[in-house]
Structure formats: C-alpha cells, structure tokens
Design a protein around this nucleic acid. Structure first.
Lengths: 132, 132
DNA sequence: AATAAAACAGTAACGATTACTGATTTTGAT
DNA sequence: ATCAAAATCAGTAATCGTTACTGTTTTATT
C-alpha cells in the first residue's frame, strides 16, 4: 500500500486553503502558513499544492494573471475575475444549460468531451461601489 | 498621432498565425517564422505577440499547460483542450444559452459581468482513433 | 537622401515553479 | 515506547517562459 504521510505542513496548507474563498496563489499560501510554521519552505508549499491537487483534494486554477491559484472547494463551479482589482470570486449558477452543456456540444464534435470550465470577467461588487 | 510602423517581422508573425488554427505558443511561432527570417529574435516574437493582442488583432489564451497561446481568430469562441495530446481545438457552438449567459448570471450577481470564456476538455478526435 | 521614431537582434534579467540534497519527521512494526 | 524505512522537510540551485535593456537597423516622412 502506498503510504502517504500527512505532515503538519501539508495539513496546515490544506486547512488554510479551506478558510479562504478567494483562491490564493502559492505565494499567498506561503506567507500565511508561515505565520504558524515560520520555517516552512516555499518549495514545500509548491510540492504540497501540487500533491493535493493531484490527489483531487484541491483545485488548481489558471487565471489571466498567469499565476496558479488554488481552491479547496472541489465542487464544479465557475469563477469570476475582476478586471479592475484582479480579485477572484466564485460564481454559483445552477442551470440545465450548464449541466448538459458537455453533452450538447459533444453531439457536434468528433471527440469526447469530459468537462468544461467557464471563466467570467467584469467589475466586482466592491469595485462597482468605489468607482461611482 | 501614434505612428505604428509595420515591420516585416510583425507581418510574418501575424501571417503565420492566420495560417494556423491550433493556437500556437510563442515558441512555436518563433520556430516557424524563423524559417522565413532566420535571424528573428525570440524577444521580437514576444513583443509583437503582445503588441498585436493589445491592438486587438489577435487573441491571447491561457491554457492549463501554463503557456500563453495565440489565436488570429478574434471572434468569440470556445476552446477544447485534449488531455491526451495537449492539442487545442476550436469549439463553435451557437446557442441562446451562451449568448445570454452573461445577463442571466449577472442577475444573481452584485457586480457587472462583461464577458465569459468556456474551456472544454476531453479526448480529441485524433486520440479517440488511435487509443482504440 | 536625410532625419527621427520605431523596431530590431542579441543578451541579460526576472519571477514563478521545479528539482536536488542532506537532515528531520512520520508511520508501522517490533 | 523504540526503532528503522520511507516520506517529507528546509534550503538552495536550477529551469523555463517571459520581459527588459542596449546599441544597431528599418521604416516612414520631409
């Protein structure tokens, strides 16, 4: 049996991610976990983020900023990127359109479609307020 | 007036992109344009790809491989990424779902949604054939 | 043709991520 | 609880895509 040893550091990384809804980058994870484990290495953060996402415990996301973002919420959901402040928000919309989108699109496609992800962009609620 | 001088190199880059439907990376553009302009610099390729996309003449895309891909087709359309071979294909599906998606999702969202892009993934037609 | 601005080639620098190394921690069995 | 093997760690060096810099060449205009 492949024995995966769950270190304190890995747990701290996962725990931190679960407290955040804004999909932090590896750098942000590092800076925050370091408050609990001052000696944690940036390499450890990267390795564990990769490990956790390979195991399916977290999601790795790619935004336009070119950085990898991480999300402890592994349910399928969409994301919104604010073009003003760069913040990322979850978009939870339930619709049949989305549920059956893969099948519908697959009917006109020779390959096999197994999933999709939709990225929205615009101005976030916060920025809408400030920029009157 | 901002006088933009259209160099042979920039034209070659745009022309090459227009012949391709598979959204090449900067590296691929470089290797191909170099066959016509053996002394072209990789920096020139990057600078012009950025310039062209800033001018709206081409599209810059971000895929899961972490690389930037470029597309001379600036119409709004979706993309498909093959998880097997990594190739990228266009997905042209016209539907009211997609047309009015922004408005529908915006109705349950405090900010302003100005657009979205959907990435599909799965097995491409080619890989479906070979991996019987 | 002469000129100034823009673009170039070549190279160095940058930043995010990954790989390496020897020390430490975790796990499961004694 | 103790111990050894395997996994993980901290720290650092290396990698790789991309951007910035510098001095030269091309472009468009007079």
């Amino acid at each position: 049996m492949a024995s995966i040893k769950y270190s304190r550091q890995r747990k701290a990384i996962k725990d931190f991610l679960m407290t955040r809804k804004d999909h932090p980058t590896a750098e942000t994870v590092y800076l925050n976990v370091r408050e609990t484990y001052p000696h944690i290495s940036l390499g450890t953060v990267y390795r564990n983020l990769t490990l956790l996402s390979d195991m399916g415990e977290i999601q790795r996301l790619h935004f336009k900023d070119g950085l990898d973002h991480f999300d402890a919420d592994i349910r399928s959901h969409s994301h919104f990127l604010c073009t003003e402040c760069g913040s990322v928000l979850d978009i939870d919309y339930q619709s049949d359109d989305d549920l059956y989108l893969d099948e519908r699109v697959n009917s006109g496609f020779d390959g096999r479609i197994t999933g999709h992800i939709t990225y929205f962009q615009g101005i976030c609620p916060e920025c809408c307020k400030t920029s009157v």
